[in-house]
């Protein structure tokens, strides 16, 4: 649910990074945080375990600029990827305006990708959203690793509807901003359509 404030002239939107455990959701946010000018970002909040696994969520507020006198802010969230944090994961999706699914390209993580994507659909449905009708981008992460699934096959399995997708190496920043820009544009265009 976006928040439009005519008084302070702000548009706030919520984008959630979803995906299986250790796929690189937090890494995406960390890279965005590192590469954004200080005046454009707030603090990166990570609610993580001692071993740096996301426990509840990461949060990064970004102010990218103004459109027609309205300041546009994106609130980026990640969910905890590990299967047993299902309840927390669902909470983060509440009020989402756009979703990034970060897939782990490694062959041995394909089942986890499929399971997580299914979990995303189910959780969205519980809030009355349909993934097919939300701004949505898929990121194929970890393209630098040796044992990866070819993109064509990833597309066939994870992206039959052919939504925008990007290859990424989040740890080096490749594909990170491309993914963010795409979902951000989709979110604003969707708001424009509905408004």
């Amino acid at each position: 649910m976006s928040f439009i404030n005519y008084s302070t002239r702000e548009i706030n939107c919520k984008i959630v990074y979803y995906g299986p455990g250790l796929c690189g959701k937090t890494t995406n946010l960390q890279f965005i945080y590192k590469k954004t000018a200080p005046e454009q970002k707030g603090k990166l909040i990570s609610l993580a375990t001692e071993s740096e696994r996301t426990l509840f969520f990461d949060f990064l507020p970004l102010a990218l600029g103004d459109i027609k006198g309205f300041r546009v802010r994106f609130h980026l969230y990640t969910v905890p990827g590990q299967v047993f944090y299902a309840a927390s994961r669902k909470l983060i999706l509440k009020g989402v305006d756009g979703v990034v699914f970060v897939a782990d390209s490694q062959i041995e993580r394909m089942d986890a990708n499929i399971e997580s994507l299914e979990d995303l659909r189910i959780n969205l449905a519980e809030y009355g959203y349909e993934l097919d009708r939300l701004p949505f981008v898929i990121q194929y992460n970890k393209r630098d690793l040796p044992n990866i699934v070819p993109v064509g096959e990833l597309q066939k399995i994870l992206n039959p509807d052919n939504v925008p997708s990007y290859e990424a190496i989040a740890s080096q920043g490749m594909g990170v901003f491309e993914t963010l820009k795409d979902v951000g544009k989709q979110v604003l265009k969707e708001l424009k359509k509905n408004y």
């Binding site: 976006s2 404030n5 005519y6 008084s7």
Partner: peptide, 11 residues
């Protein structure tokens, strides 16, 4: 999707 919209007076 329902947006929260805030107007001058209520704000």
């Amino acid at each position: 999707m329902s947006e929260l919209v805030m107007y001058e007076e209520e704000f």
